[in-house]
Design a binder for these strands. Sequence first.
DNA 1: CTGAAAGCGCTAACAC
DNA 2: GTGTTAGCGCTTTCAG
Lengths: 345, 345
Amino acid sequence: MNKKISIVDIANALNISKTTVSFILNGRAQEKRISEELVKRVLKLVKEVGYKPNSLAKSLRTGKSNIIGLMVEDISNPFFANIARLIEDRAYEKGYRIIYCSTDNDTEKTQDLLTMFQDRHVDGYIIAPPKNIEDDVAALIKSGLPVVMFDRYLPNVDTDYVVVDNQFSTYNATRHLIEQGYSKIAFITFASEQTQMLDRVEGYKNALKEARLKPYLREIDFNRNEELIIEPLTAYLKRNPDFDAVLFGTDHIGTCGLKVIKHLGLQVPADLAVVSFDDYDVFKLYSPPVTAIAQPIEAIADNVISLLLKKLDANHTQTTQKITLSTTLNTRDSSRSMLKVAITK
Amino acid sequence: MNKKISIVDIANALNISKTTVSFILNGRAQEKRISEELVKRVLKLVKEVGYKPNSLAKSLRTGKSNIIGLMVEDISNPFFANIARLIEDRAYEKGYRIIYCSTDNDTEKTQDLLTMFQDRHVDGYIIAPPKNIEDDVAALIKSGLPVVMFDRYLPNVDTDYVVVDNQFSTYNATRHLIEQGYSKIAFITFASEQTQMLDRVEGYKNALKEARLKPYLREIDFNRNEELIIEPLTAYLKRNPDFDAVLFGTDHIGTCGLKVIKHLGLQVPADLAVVSFDDYDVFKLYSPPVTAIAQPIEAIADNVISLLLKKLDANHTQTTQKITLSTTLNTRDSSRSMLKVAITK
DNA sequence: CTGAAAGCGCTAACAC
DNA sequence: GTGTTAGCGCTTTCAG
């Protein structure tokens, strides 16, 4: 029923024109010097009948929607789910609605989604971009749409983004392992050509090079089926029983890694010290607790949304901003030197 | 640039009417007996210039959008995040896009979101309903919109839903604890008047009554700030050192519970046996592994989406369907009788 | 087979 | 101060 009431209906009911109603509803009554009394009558009727302007039509006309499109890699990944949630909250406070989608790191799907967002007249875009999406994003930006990226960025596209200092994070974590006396340190991560992964690999390698140690890098193809991650991981660890420490490149691979370690019956850190990127409950609750690189999720969300809101603001005369936040290495027993662990026991 | 091309442009370019173009684009060329040659020319041009029909305008006209609105309680909760992801996948295969939002169990926010979905001409709704939303959902259904609920349902609204057998699940889990020799069994969960929670409490109570044991129910108010869950939980456990087992009502409270248990230095299951609703990595990886009630996430997602697609289908002459799926109790060491644990060691 | 024209609900010049 | 009117881009009846 509500749905059928249009601005015309309420204009007719009051014997005025829909323009007047439109002005009043859009807060331009003053400006248009519409009598207060009329304004009241209109507002009253609107309340009474529960009239809601059809925002679809509005968007069609204005090109604005108060909706922000958020594209994460995979909403079932805790990192993205948490960020999404925080961004949604912040946006909601400011009167924006968020609609999100998972890109699955699939370029085609992302393009498709981008198109959908675009002709849904989304006002702004927050994207964790998959590969090969440069052109599409560049086109978006060129046509004046506000875009903010996070988690990773596109080196060849000049746009605002919020990322963490991936390179330093793994450098620092690796150094920590070295300082604790480990020397055969593997880095196991997902194969990816995206900035965040490349940087993490880089940081790991740098730390090892500095200490004149040999790197052992294993990149596993991502797969939604966990078995297909666990299997090569198991094989790799079995094939290299002499590793004394391992650094996992993401929370997901870290979790899989723990399963493998548990299954193989390895003692942490005696047989193998462990550090993982991202810090979640699994790591905190594991025995022993796992050292982890914590990303500042709240700060990421805050920065992303305020960057976007700034761009959404009428006077967007600013240049692009690239924000790099730092992570925290939460050291726990999984990576302490075996000596110290023995002592504290 | 793409954005500016409209159906008129392509009609003009070919010197035909936009009607013809529209027909061709909507696969009604045959029906309208448009020459194959023309069809080809149109399609070719469309490809060339990369014309995409503006779906906003299309929706305005047809009232259809091929978009499904999905409202979960909190997207950062793994249960909902996983379901959302699976539903998104299934829908995508069928040509539907999903837009999701978190209701936060906030009635007002949900109403607001519902309105947004509604005038975005969402084709169907998938909702994990918060309380006091009966009227709004009833109105939705009354106006002929397809609605499917999941995780919980509204007893007073006759609609399709997919839930799990909550009552039997906790009954079964509690019985398991009793069989393992535990007798002072607490049930700790979030305060809620929703069907899923009420059923879980009921199942727990029934099992205890059957065994003539006393129930110890503690309902904690939900809070986004984990501290405010951990604190009362800690207090409750400290106040009742004689509990020999505890059943947690959701994954979230289960995770918090583990933190508390770890912090208090309690041995599981010697000091306290543990079972939790929902089965996630944290429980599998904990030492000892935690017995958990696993919800059939894939089946829930499958059923939800196929129910909705069925309703979306033109001939929706069917009555409402209420689907209740069963859970699986994955028994692990956290709830084995202490005797057995000793033996297997 | 194809085209003219109405209209989805709203906004914003432009007139009165 | 208020009303008229022309679209936004598309679908669809109804005439040719």
